[in-house]
Computed example of a mutant assay.
Amino acid sequence: MATMNVSLPDELKEFVEAQVDKHGYVSNSEFLRELIRREQDRTQLRELVVQGMESGIGSDMDENYFERLRARIRHSGAA
């Protein structure tokens, strides 16, 4: 694991320490790693949404669409 030093103003340092205490993180580093993971997830989701938007016109999301979706889920054994 690599080490990275981050300088924070006192106000942000106090915020990080408060979040560590409040949410039961083991360390400041664990809290910051969690924030970075969330940002990675958010970035990936944004990219997927953009890809979907650029992929063209989708299906009409009417009652028939949702019924077909429910049927697929029932037949997949996921329900």
Score class of each variant (00 low, 15 high):
30 E>P: 14
66 F>C: 01
25 Y>V: 03
25 Y>E: 03
57 I>V: 14
68 R>W: 08
50 V>A: 10
19 Q>W: 10
61 M>V: 12
69 L>Y: 00
46 R>T: 15
37 R>H: 11
62 D>P: 04
38 R>C: 06
51 Q>P: 05
77 G>S: 03
65 Y>S: 05
48 L>P: 02
75 H>A: 12
5 N>F: 12
3 T>N: 01
70 R>F: 02
14 E>D: 15
52 G>Y: 03
27 S>Q: 04
28 N>Y: 10
79 A>L: 12
72 R>F: 09
61 M>H: 05
65 Y>Q: 01
10 D>K: 15
49 V>G: 02
31 F>K: 14
34 E>M: 14
62 D>M: 01
37 R>D: 12
33 R>D: 07
71 A>L: 15
33 R>Q: 06
50 V>T: 03
16 V>Y: 13
60 D>N: 04
21 D>P: 02
64 N>Y: 04
4 M>Y: 10
75 H>R: 07
66 F>Q: 00
63 E>P: 03
27 S>N: 00
59 S>M: 06
61 M>W: 08
62 D>H: 08
52 G>K: 05
61 M>T: 07
37 R>I: 11
45 L>P: 00
43 T>Y: 07
7 S>M: 03
41 D>H: 05
74 R>C: 15
34 E>Q: 14
67 E>R: 02
21 D>G: 12
40 Q>I: 15
41 D>C: 06
67 E>D: 04
2 A>L: 05
39 E>I: 12
28 N>T: 11
3 T>L: 14
78 A>H: 13
5 N>A: 06
37 R>E: 11
50 V>C: 01
54 E>F: 11
56 G>R: 04
